[in-house]
Design a protein around this nucleic acid. Structure first.
Lengths: 199, 199
DNA sequence: TCGTTTACGAAACCGGAGTTGCGTAATTGG
DNA sequence: CCAATTACGCAACTCCGGTTTCGTAAACGA
């Protein structure tokens, strides 16, 4: 079970990720130079490319650490639970947006990350897995609320969550508008109460 | 009012955009080489960079032509109007997604475009202007429906449209799932009817 | 006709991502 | 101890986006 050849220097990963994170936050994605990371980490470029096959992969690894593990609180009130959950997603997005200088209403690193997702099949898979995890959590939350009668019996949970999460991403990436708790509350209200007059 | 020096060769723009479009659709964004475009168009690279300051700008110009001008139909039934409108947006997204090889459930060119939006302030502005136009159309549509009593008087039009459009983008970019008319119908139903039991 | 301005082409050049080849170091298995 | 295997550093290299320089061409106004 022990790996065959010379073992990797585990300190390298930690050091490189720290330095890369510092560079991204200081100068943005474009200002992140692989050569410079290697130099500052006191390591050869080849050593770096052995771990992360492209600069995109390295950046994704950096940003992935910013993502809090989406914990969930089930208070029994679906409205506050959804708002809480959206706020956690928003916090992750805002942290990512902070990287990259964030001059003006730019998407910052979030947009670059989406680009990386589009460029590399494996990164795309990672993103989709993360989405699936998050989706499963939200669906379970919604399902419990449905079972206890808080939500319609015939609701479309997938569409509901796509709308909530989608609006956050849309705002950050296309609109560039800020996302905070009050916006999350507006979204949840709009989604729960509907928009027809008939009520 | 006449420009001062030698006028630009207007045929160049057309020819370059055609060739670049062909290359993007054939090999994807990464397979688009500026040198190759210049060569195939029988034009110097400098001539190309005079018109589009970066490869991103060129690609955006190519994709922008794929966007149908969002025309709108106001049938008086907000549900079908919204579905129609979403379907038009979805068609544009699907056209963009078709570019870039589209191996697997990848976002294709859409993701790259978002990346370009994040990399260049001016492209971001363009995107935001387009969003604003689209948003204005949708808001007017919603407002008319509200005034004739189809929708709640106290609705949050911005949040509503963010949810609808956002879900489309979210699907294309993160999920990679297909978007068609039936999905648009699900979204509109979900948004209009709400998800609480109380109704 | 002449000076000014802008467009074009050609070529050399720069910088950064990513690769390759080679010599050497560390570890395992026999 | 020895062979196989993997990691590492170093240096040169390719590829491509983007820039610079320079000579020439096409328009304008005086």
């Amino acid at each position: 079970m022990a790996p065959r050849g010379r073992p990797r220097d585990t300190q390298v990963d930690e050091r490189v990720l720290r330095i890369a994170a510092a560079l991204i936050f200081e100068r943005g994605y474009a200002g992140l130079s692989v050569d410079e990371v290697a130099e500052q980490a006191g390591v050869a470029k080849t050593t770096l490319y052995r771990r992360w096959p492209t600069k995109d992969h390295l950046a994704v690894a950096v940003v992935a650490r910013l993502q809090a593990d989406d914990e969930i609180t089930d208070t029994g009130d679906i409205r506050t639970d959804l708002v809480d959950y959206l706020e956690k997603i928003a916090a992750g997005l805002n942290r990512m947006r902070a990287a990259g200088g964030n001059r003006g209403p730019s998407a910052g690193a979030v947009g670059e990350l989406v680009g990386a997702t589009a460029r590399h099949e494996d990164i795309g898979r990672l993103g989709r897995e993360q989405y699936a995890r998050r989706n499963a959590i939200a669906l379970a939350l919604i399902e419990r609320a449905r079972l206890r009668g808080e939500l319609r019996a015939d609701l479309d949970a997938e569409a509901l969550f796509d709308q909530l999460a989608g609006a956050l991403y849309y705002r950050v990436m296309i609109t560039g508008a800020p996302i905070d708790r009050s916006y999350a509350e507006r979204l949840v209200s709009c989604a729960l109460e509907g928009n027809m007059t008939c009520r």
